Amino acid sequence: MKTLLIANKHLGALVLEMLLRRGHDVTLITADAENASAIWAERLSLKTTVKPDRVPLVGEDIPAGLDLVISAHSHRILPTWVTRRPKRGAIGYHPSLLPAFKGRAAIADALAAGVPFAGGTVYHLTNELDGGATVMGRSGPLQKPVQVIWGEAPTQIWRRALMPLGLELLTEAVETLEGA
């Protein structure tokens, strides 16, 4: 599948690796040349566009003939002309049980609210912040809770549970969409 990955940091690098193992033809858009996604893509000589989130995407940033767009650890809101382009959809991972706790501070907001469970959701990308419907996987909606450990900081729950969950849920989403 021809896949556009819009990703940053370690989760983006893990998703990139998963897509390549599955035989995808991947193009990466990342916000910073120094993050793990960009460094990994450079080592693999993959086509990469480095563009800060505040800089709009243009037509030449988006490859023709796309099958799938995936957003992993990205804060970029994609315009409709991008999300409607791929044949099998545009999906993203968000570290909350959507529709609760949208936005960049989702983990901190969930912890501040004192919820016993945080979680992650794979959803259809729209031009609304974390606003699309939950993607359906083989076993149902791709949304899972994780237990919050009392006193845990947002970065701790991210590393311990939410980042691995993101890779798990995005992998299931890709497997499902490959069979579509």
Rank of each mutant, 00 (worst) to 15 (best):
K144S: 14
W81K: 03
A106V: 07
D109K: 06
A113G: 02
R76N: 00
I77T: 03
Y123V: 06
D130H: 07
G119S: 05
G92I: 04
V122C: 01
G120A: 06
A100K: 12
Y93K: 03
A108K: 07
A118C: 10
V115C: 01
I70H: 08
Y123H: 08
L98I: 13
T126E: 06
D109G: 03
P95G: 08
Q143N: 13
P79S: 06
D130C: 04
H94I: 10
P141A: 14
Y93P: 01
I149N: 15
N127P: 13
S96W: 05
Q147F: 15
N127K: 11
K102E: 12
P141L: 13
L78A: 05
I70C: 07
L129C: 12
Y93S: 05
G137K: 02
P145T: 14
S96H: 05
A105R: 00
W81D: 01
R85F: 07
A110L: 12
R84A: 07
K144I: 08
M136C: 14
Y123P: 04
Q143M: 14
A118S: 10
V122L: 02
I149S: 15
A133Y: 09
R76Y: 00
A118V: 09
Y93H: 05
K87G: 06
S139F: 12
Q147G: 15
V146E: 13
I70E: 09
V148N: 12
F117Y: 13
K87I: 10
T121H: 08
E128I: 15
P79L: 08
H94D: 05
P99C: 13
R85K: 00
V148I: 15
H75K: 00
G103R: 04
A118Y: 01
A112K: 03
R104A: 08
S71K: 03
A100E: 15
F117G: 05
L111A: 04
V122H: 02
V69A: 04
A106K: 00
L98P: 13
H73R: 01
K144C: 12
A90E: 10
P141K: 14
A110Q: 07
Y93T: 01
S74L: 00
S139T: 11
S71M: 09
K144L: 14
